[in-house]
């Protein structure tokens, strides 16, 4: 029997479209990239920084940022870290398996279709590079067309937790300034050791005229923004991607509240002027 998707009309925003896993790649011990194609043949239109709700049928649904680029004509790309029941099921998918996809949801990095003559600095911590990967692809392409320079600064706890090593090499070849560091070295690591904030001062970007996109643990984003500010970067030029429990993506379930924000709707990408106070409040 062919794969069938039947929907009553109108289709509820809580009903996913079905996608087949057409390729799968392991990034690190607990991070997997899935390439997905819609069973209906539809292409999902999104902007870099947005997320989808991915369903491992029978296990549940989680919010995962798109790790592909909007300009990539290939399959939809998601990079998932195995941290719970649903992400474990997603990471365990084989090629040919069918999962549910709803989206795209939320705010984006403001990069898609928005080239600037100024520098763009992308700062990622660990798996935080996944929601930024599409933006870097777009920025690198724009740089080739004469737009501003691109800097990609990545920190990982340990060398084997660094994702997208092939992409980092490609971007460097394409003229992007790529700097990576690890918190703790391991045998065979000859690169930098230190927090991602140690990369900022000597990266070479124009602190007075740049935009900065950050994704990583909240503490890493706070310290990065603080360090950037000390270098002269205006806080209003910094964007961060925030995370809370999300169960609908539609502004209905209430789980993703962060003070005045519903992060599925007003985030995940939030300007740091607004985010800073919220990130500094305990247990918010």
């Amino acid at each position: 029997m062919a794969s069938a998707t039947e929907f009553s009309v109108p289709r509820s925003a809580l009903t996913p479209a079905l996608y087949r896993v057409v390729a799968r790649g392991r990034e690190t011990a607990d991070v997997v990239t899935l390439w997905l194609e819609s069973l209906d043949g539809e292409r999902l239109s999104f902007r870099s920084g947005q997320f989808n709700m991915l369903s491992a049928l029978g296990v549940g649904e989680v919010a995962v940022s798109v790790s592909g680029s909007p300009s990539d004509p290939g399959p939809l790309r998601h990079t998932v870290r195995d941290v719970g029941a649903v992400t474990h099921a997603l990471c365990s998918c084989d090629v040919g398996d069918v999962i549910g996809v709803r989206g795209p949801f939320g705010t984006d990095w403001g990069v898609t279709g928005n080239a600037t003559p100024h520098d763009t600095v992308v700062v990622a911590g660990g798996i935080g590079l996944a929601p930024l990967r599409g933006a870097v692809e777009e920025l690198a392409a724009a740089q080739r067309e004469g737009a501003g320079r691109v800097f990609v600064l990545v920190g990982a706890r340990e060398p084997d937790q660094m994702v997208f090593l092939d992409d980092l090499a490609e971007w460097e070849k394409a003229g992007v300034v790529v700097l990576i560091t690890v918190d703790r070295p391991a045998p065979g690591w000859s690169g930098r050791v230190g927090l991602v904030t140690t990369l900022l001062a000597n990266a070479g970007f124009d602190a007075r005229h740049c935009r900065v996109l950050i994704c990583g643990p909240e503490i890493m984003m706070r310290f990065t923004a603080r360090a950037l500010n000390e270098l002269g970067v205006d806080l209003a030029s910094i964007w961060v991607s925030l995370e809370r429990n999300m169960q609908c993506g539609l502004g209905w379930c209430g789980h993703c509240q962060l003070g005045p924000l519903l992060l599925c709707r007003d985030g995940p990408v939030v300007n740091y002027l607004e985010a800073s106070a919220l990130m500094n409040e305990r247990e918010r």
């Binding site: 029997m1 062919a2 794969s3 069938a4 998707t5 039947e6 929907f7 009553s8 289709r11 509820s12 809580l14 009903t15 996913p16 079905l18 049928l57 029978g58 040919g96 398996d97 069918v98 549910g100």
Partner: peptide
Amino acid sequence: ELWRARVGDGHVELVEIP
């Protein structure tokens, strides 16, 4: 209850519950 899916070998039938 929003929808029901029957997950078979390599295919899925998904129907909204009216």
